[in-house]
Each structure stands twice: as C-alpha cells, then as structure tokens.
Amino acid sequence: MGNRELLREAKKTLRNEWFLPIILTAPDKTVYDKINGTENQLLGDVRSESKPFDPDVGGRIVIDRVSITILLSDLARVPAEGETWFVEYPEDLLENGTLKKTAFTSDNIDVGGSTIGYIKVFPQEIKSA
C-alpha cells in the first residue's frame, strides 16, 4: 500500500472514530445527512473553544467558538460563495447528543491552503425572528 493510500485510510479511520454526526441543510432546503454516495451518517470534527480576540478598536473580547471540519469528499455539494447553510451538531459534543441548529455563510468558512481536502466552518447561533 502506497503512502497516499495509507493517508487516505488514516483519514477515514480518524473520521469514523472521532468525528461526530452532523446534518447540513443547503439554501435550496436539501438536507445532507449522509456521506456522499453512501448510506453512512455524515460526520464532522466538531470542536469548541473560548477564543479571545483583540480587536483594533475597544478592549479584548472572549467568544465561544465552534469549528466543524468536514472531509470535502464526503459532501455531495460544497457551500458556495454567498450561500447560507444550516448545520446541526450534537450540542454536548457527544455522539448521541441533542442536535443544535446553527448557520454559516461563506464568510464563516475556511477552505484551501492548509485545509486542502477539508472544509472548516465556524457556525453561528441563530434564533427565530
């Protein structure tokens, strides 16, 4: 088995054993909850942290930040520029936790560069009008 093959298998192992179930909803209301081309649950690496920011104006601000990293190859459709998506993830970051609905736009996505092969989204809390 070549190194590329080994890396691909390692990524799958990491995803299957560490990532959490997520559900994506596209702007056209299509729900993506399966890995592309399979019947397996769509998974993402969901992490939470409290991150301090030092903005150019005003004092320091501490923000709770969740990031969800998803294998691009798992997605049937990749969020595009200008789109708004919903993403649901287990609120307590446990496999069977209650799903929490959040949203992200193309402004909250980190893709490319060091994240080649992955898409990393920073979802934001939402509420009903």
Partner: peptide, 21 residues
C-alpha cells in the same frame, strides 16, 4: 459593544436567515 446572533424566519430554509454579521 454589540454582539448578535443570526435571525431566521423559516427554520427549514437557510435562505431566510439574516446573518449574525
């Protein structure tokens, strides 16, 4: 200081969201 969440009108429709930004 201002901090805001996104606001939606239809919980099934992401395009109904006004972003937090």
């Amino acid at each position: 200081q201002v901090s805001a969440m996104g606001v939606f009108t239809d919980s099934d429709d992401p395009s109904s969201l006004v972003s937090a930004e």
